[in-house]
Design a protein around this nucleic acid. Structure first.
Lengths: 318, 318
DNA sequence: TTGTATGCGTTATCAT
DNA sequence: ATGATAACGCATACAA
């Protein structure tokens, strides 16, 4: 490319990167740009990565389909914002590439940052990443971590929020659904803990997403007076089963969902749900991340960014 | 790394890549592996990319949250399978990085393959990619393309499938919902075309996802006898509005959704929906892609892989 | 069976 | 104000 423009490689680099401490005449700049356009020249990201020791990739090793709509929306916009800062968000599910530990396949890409569930992080993994150029490893968790700074989605607060509303409505015997579904069961347990912070005796109701299971629960004689159903989908499942069993909602049993899905208002009774108000915008996070990667800012273990604040949206089901 | 193992770089490369035309003693192999483990050595993907001219990345430039659950599930498993073949699926939303054409930012990563909506492809973009090392550009479309091989999700077939069922049930005046929602409006129009293939006079019903809009439609005096509501969520919205307006479903108006979501069976009446049977598995596609990238197979414009076959699941709403 | 040498495209440093 | 050069880590042709 350089030879084609009649200038040196260095000059090309200066021009195309708008390098501020390079002094290049406007005439030369034009010649370089012309040649680049003519040749369809595109800078090679891998060469830059090799040279600088760090890629522009921000890794998010999560199974997209399993993270839920809320976090998926967040990632979507976060990726947009990162793009504006020159990064590329890379989302991919877990692999067991010939038994290679996940952290190694992450490190191979020399990512600028990694955002991953803390349950999948070990000290060794963090060390491997940081020693191979990654500037910051951010955990995804529901509480602070001694290992890394975290982005928090506080599931206990969600359960507590729902439970407070149910108690406030005069229901004293509570229950909380814990989905029997891989990938979200842990979140279910966290939300249950939150319910129990407010209503210590709350019952755990394990439930798979099937009408048979829901019918079995609905047929019980000793149903709690109020149930936090984990999310809106499980709430719909449960309400549907309760109605089929002749149990009145909310008269006999109050039900609260979470996520405040658009379809929540379409149910009859309309679904009372825990809504998530964003507290940190993707744009702010992207800007923060850029500062950290550029070394203008430190972020150690213990640091916390809260993503959402739960808020109850009262409709008819509770 | 090489010096630490007491061997040459070349030997390290041979051993770690299981290079078949290199003959290395088992003893040396062991020494290399031991040193790699001891040092926490991780090969640098960017160096490999620079050397070979092509990365292991498979780019899917789509806004994840907007592609729908079905395709998201597909991508999720496709990514897993690609991982087994040594590729990394990279999903990211559209950027407008300082006005740089999208194809340039794709080409910068020297991806092995790109899978993208054909509406975002031009001849120039395809040429740029192929000339910079990308082995195959695959379009995502609802019909064959003269530009690239495509993966098909035939929306017209979906509409036709729903319309056939409605006609077969004795409904002759049909309507089809076209969502007024960026990103899915084009799919809505394709599904409408499919309905009209079977029922030429079918009415187009534009609808935004809001209860007010749906109520307005439901209040009409001249409702069609059968409506294909685009998908299950719009079907739920519409049915809810119809019921509020005193219109009986399916007696007065039959409604068909699509996607066959788990919650479809929770509605009352239970939702009749177009289900998607996978015809090509992610595993097959990943294997196919690997063959193409390795040059063992050609894939030119016109080639088509059909992803799903639509099938009606009859319940109570139509 | 193993080592040596070369070059991929970029950027930092130093020379002109 | 611009050019020359080295080095990043890896894969590969070729020498030993």
């Amino acid at each position: 490319m350089a030879r084609a423009a009649g200038v040196s490689q260095a000059t090309v680099s200066y021009v195309l990167n708008d390098n501020p401490n390079a002094r290049v005449s406007e005439q030369t700049r034009e010649r370089v740009r012309e040649a680049a356009a003519r040749l369809g020249y595109v800078p090679d990201a891998s060469a830059r990565t090799l040279r600088t020791g760090r890629s522009g990739l921000v890794l998010v090793p999560l199974a997209p389909a399993r993270t839920g709509r809320l976090f998926q929306d967040f990632l979507d916009r976060f990726g947009d914002e990162l793009g504006r800062h020159g990064f590329t968000l890379v989302q991919y599910g877990e692999r067991h590439l010939k038994g290679v530990p996940a952290a190694k396949s992450w490190a191979a890409l020399r990512p600028a940052a990694v955002l991953v569930d803390v349950t999948r992080l070990t000290k060794a993994a963090v060390d491997l990443l940081t020693s191979s150029g990654t500037r910051v490893v951010i955990g995804l968790a529901d509480k602070p971590s001694p290992l890394v700074p975290v982005v928090v989605l506080d599931h206990e607060a969600v359960g507590a929020c729902a439970a407070r509303h149910l108690l406030g409505g005069g229901r004293s015997r509570l229950g909380a659904v814990v989905p029997r579904e891989e990938g979200i069961d842990l979140m279910g347990e966290a939300r249950l803990r939150g319910v129990r912070q407010v209503a210590p005796g709350a019952e755990r109701i394990d439930l798979a997403f099937s009408e048979e299971e829901a019918a079995r629960v609905a047929a019980r004689a000793d149903l709690p007076e109020g149930i936090f159903a984990y999310n809106d989908e499980y709430a719909m499942l449960l309400i549907s089963a309760l109605q089929d069993a002749g149990v009145r909602v909310p008269d006999d049993v109050a039900v609260v969902g979470a996520d405040d899905l658009p379809i929540a208002t379409l149910m009859r009774p309309r679904l009372t749900s825990v809504h998530f108000d964003p507290t940190a915008t993707p744009g702010e996070l992207a800007a923060l991340l850029e500062e950290i990667v550029r070394g203008e800012r430190e972020a150690g273990p213990g640091a916390v960014v809260d993503l959402y604040r739960p808020r109850i949206v009262v409709r008819d089901s509770a």
